[in-house]
Every structure is written in structure tokens, then in C-alpha cells.
């Protein structure tokens, strides 16, 4: 990724009439509104119930590599046991 110049000079568009700090406040406000609104997504039909199942199961849904998810180790053990792959236990 280093063949390109350091992207973003961080300067707001000159066309904007808002000052940088107002833009920052507006962006933070939007993010806060999103965070406040997001739990309401759970009221959508079908979604809330499924989210509750996932929450009760304690799965780390946002993990993007297997070692952050406990169930992967359980799965490995289950598969080894079912398919008779016990050799590494000896």
C-alpha cells in the first residue's frame, strides 16, 4: 500500500460553508444518532428474535478471524471426535 502518496490532506472542501469544527460536530452528532437509533433495528420483524438467539449464545459475531470465536475450537473437537481423528490426543 505504500506506492501511493499519503492520502488525504485533511482539508475540507473550500465550497463548504461550514467550518471544520462544525463539520466535526455534525459528523459526531450523526454517529451518536446512529448509535442511539441502532438498537431500534432489533424491533424489525424477525431480526430482534434472531439477535436475541445470537446474544444468548454469546457468539462474537464481529470477529473476523477464527481464534476470536470460542465455537471454532468446539467445532474442531466435535469434528475430530465424530470422524474418529483422535491421533493427536495420544
Amino acid at each position: 500500500m505504500n506506492r501511493h502518496k499519503q492520502a488525504g490532506d485533511g482539508q475540507p472542501s473550500p465550497a463548504s460553508s461550514l467550518t471544520p469544527w462544525l463539520r466535526l460536530a455534525a459528523a459526531i452528532g450523526l454517529l451518536a444518532a446512529f448509535m442511539a437509533f441502532a438498537p431500534k433495528l432489533e424491533r424489525l420483524p424477525g431480526v430482534g428474535q434472531r439477535i436475541e438467539v445470537l446474544r444468548e449464545s454469546g457468539i462474537n459475531v464481529g470477529a473476523w478471524y477464527y481464534d476470536d470465536v470460542e465455537e471454532y475450537f468446539e467445532a474442531e473437537e466435535y469434528v475430530r471426535k465424530r470422524l474418529g481423528k483422535k491421533d493427536r490426543f495420544q
Binding site: 488525504g8 490532506d9 485533511g10 482539508q11 475540507p12 471544520p20 469544527w21 463539520r23 466535526l24 459528523a27 459526531i28 454517529l31
Partner: peptide, 8 residues
């Protein structure tokens, strides 16, 4: 948000 508002 930072880089596109107040700059870095």
C-alpha cells in the same frame, strides 16, 4: 471523520 473535517 477526523481527516475529512478538522484535518490531520
Amino acid at each position: 471523520i477526523i481527516s475529512n473535517t478538522v484535518g490531520v
